[in-house]
Design a binder for these strands. Structure first.
Lengths: 213, 213
DNA sequence: ACAAAAGTGTTGCCAGTACACCCATGA
DNA sequence: TCATGGGTGTACTGGCAACACTTTTGT
């Protein structure tokens, strides 16, 4: 039997303490007006395909990794489609710089807790991607991708509190991250919010992969 | 473009301290006489397909989990094939009971360090599966699948020494496994080898998933 | 001055590590 | 009785958890 094959890319970022995923607005039937993961039918290699999607959405140099493969869920109107999902990660600064309007394609970042109506079975695929995201973010190298520079410790702490579904002690959390030896105090502070401004930190160039939780 | 899709199942077990994988002997050209992972072209769902493979090799109730998807490597003589590999795990006692000769298909367990000449790019796929195997075996639930009962602690220790590429202290290793609270001393001992016989243990019925290393 | 949020240090505990001798069996 | 491999206990240490007050800013 013959199948069409497509790659689906779920790009995640963390912006102002919110975990967000990039979706594209579907302009044609079926599911017109619904949202979906950027998807590309396979023409060469899997990675080549994902790279093409990355160019289409205007986020070159995106980190990505294969996640999960699906068959016999609705991925297209044609029945026999195989879908291979990829998890992409980017920091919020870089994704601000890049325009999210490319070639008339309408892209938008959605809070992971407010995903709009999605085409096909993309909602389930997004959920699986988010599960992977939560498992991976406890690794120092993934954290560095999401927060390369100019982050505050309370900001990262809140993310971990969301992902791990616990409250964390501020002092112990600080100690853990600083004692890693991978982050540097930039000397700047995060002005303009209520309360005492937080110090801004930056990840070092080269770090080891280490589990934080 | 249309692709054929196949699932590949790499079943791993640990027998007499050796990590082994189950391969099937190829009886027809191309690659006649070479060995390969049990493979099945996709006809219904991915899991349905894997279950079918499991029945073919005579190991029902096998634990398995999706591993990685490949395209544009050699998976068949036809060029356009997608391969989705699954990691299967079974304890050595159960796989002894089950015959590995089914319907004239010749199956054999190979030590992971002595893989024979493999058809297509299966050697790379096996290597990827083995990498996953090594990452997963540090979890208590996976350990239980491989060693449900009548195992000795030195036996498991040697496996971890292989997988982690370190030497472990016997006393500390014992403490770690026993303090988990998931294993029971059966009261029996492992006779018939040189030296003092080791105690035999068994995993409890219900255990939590816990990381050991 | 008050509210809001961030920064800071000390102590206790538990888990992990290092380490050496005795025990049960087969040959 | 010897060789082989398995079982056992203690002391140290370093990382993690618990815990409250002070500091900086905006209003």
């Amino acid at each position: 039997m013959n199948y069409s094959v497509q790659t689906l890319l779920g790009v995640f970022t963390i912006d102002k303490g919110k975990i967000k995923v990039l979706l594209v607005h579907k302009k044609s039937e079926p599911y017109r007006g619904y949202w979906m993961l950027p998807t590309e039918f396979l023409t060469d290699s899997l990675e080549g395909n994902v790279e093409r999607t990355i160019n289409d959405i205007g986020l070159p140099n995106l980190f990505y990794t294969q996640n999960k493969t699906y068959a016999n869920i609705e991925l297209d109107t044609k029945k026999e489609v195989i879908g291979i999902s990829y998890l992409g990660l980017i920091d919020s600064i870089t994704c601000y710089l890049k325009s999210t309007k490319v070639d008339g394609v309408e892209l938008e970042w959605f809070d992971i807790n407010s995903i709009p109506k999605t085409a096909y079975d993309h909602e389930m695929i997004i959920k699986d991607l988010y599960d992977s995201f939560k498992k991976r973010i406890v690794n120092s190298n993934i954290l560095k991708i999401l927060f390369p520079s100019d982050f505050t410790l309370p900001e990262i702490q809140k993310i971990y509190e969301t992902v791990l579904e616990t409250k964390l002690d501020r002092r112990n959390f600080r100690k853990k991250l600083i004692n890693l030896g991978y982050i540097i105090d930039t000397g700047d502070i995060n002005e303009g919010y209520t309360g005492r401004p937080a110090k801004l930190y930056r990840f070092k160039e080269e770090i080891e992969e280490r589990k934080l939780f």
